[in-house]
Write a protein that binds this DNA or RNA. Structure first.
Length: 604
RNA sequence: GGGAGCGUAGCACAAUUGGUUAGUGCACCGGACUGUCGAUCCGGAGGUCGCGAGUUCGAGUCUCGUCGCUCCCGCCA
């Protein structure tokens, strides 16, 4: 007999009755009746009830052993009496009568409570410090397994579509664009640093130049950014994709198939049919106030600035004349809501930076509300037409600078979705956001700058760069969004150095800057570069959506906390003076030495 | 860098307008119990109410500061 197990804790059924078996696992639960002791033994696969009788030599020890200790149990499988069957677990029709028990590894009292999949999961700080315990919990264990299966599925899918997986360097050079880099000092080259890649962007484009045609990688990406609920600090993974001789539609077709099939495979929820709908960036900003709209909420906003410009509502009219906009949020059938509902919404709006929140109520044969008296019949009729207003509907109004109005209106739309409970359930609504602007104006300096990444091909190519107002030029740049979560950004790349130089020129750089900042790419493009494009859906976010988790840490094995610390491994940590000397590094911050940095390390 | 929320036993939470000895459940320790499956019953131990200052006859509760965590803004080509 195998020293540890003949079966897993999820394998034994009625048909195994009377067999002698051996299982190993953790003590999940104990129920001690004095004369009889039940132990639920748990492993990766499931759990099985073990019976310990008082006449056995190990009975005493079993009644004392702590939860989460590891045991090997040998005994006979016995069918349970009908009234003793536990229908909640698949091994519930049998139990094992223990004939021998080996105590492989005993547990101390665990700092977090694991038994009984309760909602009380304990404080995040302890969960992160004792991650290996937290990972034993069924829900987290299930999420991590889901992630493993999703990644395996993605690989299989990509390979079936003719893509090849390549590794790219982890130690590379800092790129001038984008987020803050994580830097790694060089020992051999004093004063020089490697950077961890924010994404394998340049490498994957170079693989296209090298002729590999279709690339993918489950790629680690490192960015020194602050955390969010859907953004773990430090590192994350992307399904990085690049393809040669491809149009935007070719990229969409691949991504739609991969995302649709993956979500279908691992979720019972509805998934948008392909092709996913495409929403131009400017339309998204107008209708949803954001470039990552949650399409499960049946509210579409519209612009009504012109209606208010000459209206009797002085506050808005004056603001619009000075460049503000008015965004309307029409909501179906909520006229019956109490005054407090509207008051709460307004105070929420003010909390997030709104100056106020006007509204009109279409109430049987009249239109009422705080601003109704300022508006003419014609203006009210125009508003009704724009929002498709019917009896019972309410239209909210936000007046502010375009950016602020969009941001606040977007937040209010989300809050309305939640508070009114009108977010469609059990569905993944995908969309593409397309036609991002190539350039935008820097709010502070007034300069023209790249909106997204400078590698994107402008729509209309060189001609557009030469002839159009830079702010009107769109890029072959796209995002894929699901339920309000930005899953991915991508672009058809600019593979022509002449167009790249011109684009950089518009953004205030000269030709040399292109070669200085992106030497590998701009050199490579001199030797025959295929037209190419790609995208990189975030794996963590994908799994988070499929798992229905509300926090990205729930789908990462060993995540860091919000301040980018690994409480389990005590990272980041101070290093010795010797290590620093080898790397030619001297502490610069006042009063920071290796010694007192060490005192500040995450505690044991 | 900024804003909001939270911080009471190992864990989850409670404590009337500021008012006596800060409670309950789980976990832990002791005891009882031969059919439980979040076992049950009896008993016990466990607290610098994050930390510091202030207001007050009196602070877990109010004020200020500070630290920590989470969420958000900035940031994320």
């Amino acid at each position: 007999m195998h020293p540890y197990r003949t079966h897993t804790c999820n394998e034994l059924r009625l048909e195994h009755a009377e067999q002698n078996v051996r299982i190993s696992g953790w003590v999940y639960h104990k129920r001690d009746h004095g004369g009889i002791l039940f132990i639920d033994l748990r492993d990766h696969y499931g759990r099985t009830q073990v019976i310990v009788n008082p006449e056995t030599p190990f009975f005493e020890k079993c009644s004392e052993v702590r939860l989460e200790s590891v045991l090997t149990v040998t005994g006979k499988v016995v069918a349970r009496e009908p009234n003793m069957i536990n229908p909640d677990i698949v091994t519930g029709e049998i139990e094992i009568v223990a004939e021998n028990i080996i105590f492989e590894s005993e547990s101390q009292i665990t700092p977090i409570y694991l038994a009984g999949e309760s909602e009380d999961v304990g404080p995040e700080e302890l969960r992160l410090k004792y991650r290996y315990l937290d990972l034993r919990r069924e829900s987290l264990h299930r999420n991590i397994m889901l992630r493993s299966r999703v990644i395996a599925f993605l690989r299989k899918k990509m390979e079936s579509l003719g893509f090849n997986e390549f590794q790219t360097p982890i130690l590379t050079s800092s790129s001038p664009e984008g987020a803050r880099d994580y830097l790694v000092p060089s020992r051999l080259h004093p004063g020089k640093f490697y950077a961890l890649p924010q994404a394998p962007q340049i490498f994957k484009q170079l693989l296209m130049v090298a002729g590999f045609d279709k690339y993918f990688q489950i790629a680690p990406c490192f960015r020194d950014e602050d955390a969010r609920a859907d953004r773990s600090p430090g590192e994350f993974y992307q399904l990085d994709i690049e393809m040669s001789f491809a149009t935007q539609e070719d990229v969409f077709a691949v991504v739609e198939e991969v995302l649709h099939d993956t979500f279908k495979e691992f979720s019972t929820d509805k998934v948008s049919d392909t092709p996913f709908i495409r929403i131009p960036y400017r339309e998204a900003m107008l209708k949803y106030g954001t470039d990552k709209p949650d399409l499960r909420i049946p509210i579409e906003m519209c612009d009504v600035s012109d209606v208010f410009l000459n209206s009797g509502f002085g506050a808005f009219a004056k603001a619009v004349a000075n460049g503000a906009v008015v965004r309307a949020i029409p909501v179906k059938n909520i006229k019956g809501r109490p005054r407090s509902f509207f008051d709460r919404l307004e105070s929420y709006a003010k909390e997030i930076g709104a100056k106020g929140l006007g509204y009109l109520v279409w109430d049987t044969d009249r239109i009422r509300g705080p601003i109704a008296k300022f508006m003419s019949e014609e203006e009210l009729a125009e508003l009704a037409g724009r929002g498709g207003m019917e009896d019972g509907d309410v239209m909210f109004f936000m007046c502010d600078a375009p950016d602020a109005a969009a941001r606040i209106a977007s937040e209010i739309r989300l809050k309305l979705g939640r508070d009114l409970d009108i977010i469609e359930k059990g569905t993944f609504r995908f969309c593409w956001i397309v036609d991002f602007p190539m350039f935008e104006r820097d709010e502070e300096t007034g300069d023209i700058i790249f909106s997204h990444n400078p590698f994107s091909m402008p729509q209309g190519g060189m001609e557009a760069l030469l002839e159009k107002d830079p702010l009107d030029i769109l890029a072959y740049q796209y995002d894929v969004v699901c339920n309000g979560v930005e899953l991915s950004s991508g672009a058809i790349r600019n593979h022509r150095t002449d167009i790249m130089v011109k684009a950089f020129e518009i953004a205030g750089y000269d030709e040399n800057d292109v070669y200085d900042q992106f030497p590998a790419l701009s050199n490579a493009f001199k030797y025959g570069a295929p037209p190419h494009g790609g995208i990189a859906p975030g794996v963590d976010r994908m799994v988070m959506l499929i798992a229905g988790a509300d926090n990205i840490r729930e789908v990462i094995t060993f995540p860091m906390n919000q301040r980018a610390q690994d409480l389990m491994m005590s990272a980041p940590a101070s290093v010795s003076e010797k290590q620093l000397r080898e790397l030619h590094i001297k502490m610069r911050a006042k009063n920071v030495t290796p010694e007192n940095a060490k005192q500040d390390d995450v505690a044991e």
